[in-house]
Design a protein around this nucleic acid. Structure first.
Length: 423
RNA sequence: GUGGCUUUAGCUCAGCUGGUUAGAGCAUCAGAUUGUGGAUCUGAGGGUCGAGGGUUCAAAUCCCUCAAGCCACCCCA
């Protein structure tokens, strides 16, 4: 009979063989975040749809075509979260964090959902490690976020990451720049690709997102926003660049980096890695979002943060160093049915002392059981059969040296401690 | 939403121009004189050859339709 279901498109099972990479990623994330004073937060997997429509922006790709939205029984429109920043800003105000000492530093690790066509490094359900610093506009916090992300990669021994940096201005300087951009592109309207023509109207900044070779040429000579920042934006960007230089973090000024979410202001950045290919080369990215809180109907509050792609980083990590799952060190074998409960109890005794023990159920030839123990990677095998029962002893076998001793039950623990060390 | 490629055992694949009960390697399990291991040898289980339809005496193999998966575009994590 055919199975009733398989894995839904765009999802993946993270199997035991891959979990060590994920655990390394998570451990490094926790470690770095805590060192900088970020505290973990988890928001719901779904939110009110409007949170994203208003926060991320109506015209963005995410909102216009990538959201998993559904109605609950009361007819409310809910959406599986496509990104983490808007929910965290919402939680910040819901929990009254604006009365805490500012800024508030938060981090999260969890799944997100976007209904794009899946491909390498891109999934319907994907995981992000992200941080948000809310309540202070200092550009040094931009630097802090970038450094934290940089340290995350470094702590994982991931080489080959390049930092791309840009500033996209704010409500003061961006409107004028937008006009300038329109004037520049207007004569070439007919030559632009179809999507670029649509962006010309809605959001000319995103003309820079185009990879159309035709548009590429035009982009090259277009006015760059970093040359048209207002005073405060230019000053902030200067501080960011100086801060990164002081941290000896190399960055590449990338005037094409504009990012697809509406809420970004001033600093935007992306960590890229060549081994992921041209398309999904972004391991993560972020920026400042000083207008987001107001767009969501809260008191204007500045913020900055990033989101890292866990599966993409896992791919890179896997290439740089192999990791294997943790395996129990003791393998417990009974030779006859009448010994099984006794061996089961021995296993419990050792577990209570902190050792990992696999109990091998059922009856089979001893060599078959030892074969399994070896394949499982056990360092020690416990063995009880008729002979041991007779002599009230337990055979403890060192799987590496292939030597073994018989001990009384009261000596079991001390012998194991001697062989494996205390737990 | 658009395009390309792929679809044969749990996994990786072979099956040439259509011809009897569909194969290999790996993995699993079992045995190799009966209580000692990751090797070797032997053997076993496991497949409606993605689904449906068509051509033919005969189709995994040719034709059509559909589906799924992967990759790419768009964009992003």
């Amino acid at each position: 009979m055919a199975p009733v279901a398989k894995r839904p498109p765009g999802t993946q099972d993270i199997l035991p063989a891959d979990r060590p990479y994920w655990e390394a990623l998570e451990a490094a994330a926790r470690d770095q975040a805590l060192r900088f004073g970020y505290q973990r937060i988890e928001t719901p997997i779904y939110e009110t749809t409007d949170l994203f429509v208003r926060g991320v922006g109506e015209g963005t790709d995410i909102v216009s075509k990538e959201m998993y939205s559904f109605s609950d029984r009361g007819g409310r429109s809910l959406t599986l979260r496509p990104e983490g920043t808007a929910p965290i800003v919402r939680a910040y105000f819901d929990a009254g964090m604006q009365v805490e000492p500012q800024p508030v530093r938060l981090f999260y690790i969890g799944p997100f959902f976007r209904a794009e066509r899946p491909q390498a490094g891109r999934f319907h359900q994907f995981y992000q490690f992200g941080i948000e610093t809310i309540g202070d506009a200092s550009p040094l916090l931009d630097v802090e976020a970038i450094v934290l992300g940089w340290n995350w990669f470094a702590g994982l021994d991931i080489a080959g990451v390049t930092l791309h940096l840009n500033s996209i201005g704010d409500e003061v300087c961006r409107p004028a720049y937008r006009q300038l951009l329109r004037e520049y592109f207007r004569p070439y309207l007919a030559e632009l690709s179809e999507t670029s023509r649509a962006r010309f109207e809605k959001n000319p900044l995103r003309l820079f997102d185009s990879k159309d070779p035709q548009d590429e040429r035009l982009k090259h000579n277009a006015p760059r926003i970093v040359d048209h920042l207002c005073g405060p934006c230019a000053e902030a960007f200067h501080v960011v660049k100086e801060g990164l230089a002081a941290q000896e973090i190399a960055f590449e000024l990338n005037p094409n980096l504009v990012r697809g979410l509406d809420y970004y202001t001033r600093t935007v950045f992306e960590y890229q890695h060549e081994s992921l290919g041209g398309a999904q080369n972004s391991l993560g990215g972020g920026g400042r979002y000083d207008g987001l809180a107001a767009a969501l109907g809260y008191r204007p509050t500045p913020g900055v943060g990033f989101a890292m792609g866990m599966e993409r980083t896992a791919i890179v990590l896997k290439q740089s160093k192999p990791l294997t799952p943790l395996i129990p060190e003791v393998y417990a074998i009974a030779l006859e049915a009448s010994d099984e409960l006794y061996v089961f109890r021995l296993a419990s005794t050792l577990r209570a002392r902190g050792y990992g023990v696999i109990f091998d159920p059922g009856l089979a030839r001893l060599d078959a059981k030892l074969r399994k123990a070896a394949k499982r990677g056990a360092r020690v095998a416990l063995l009880v059969g008729p002979e041991e029962r007779e002599k009230k002893q337990i055979v403890i076998r060192d799987m590496h040296s292939k030597t073994q001793t018989s001990v009384a039950e009261r000596e079991l623990l001390s012998t194991v401690v001697q062989m494996l060390g205390a737990r």
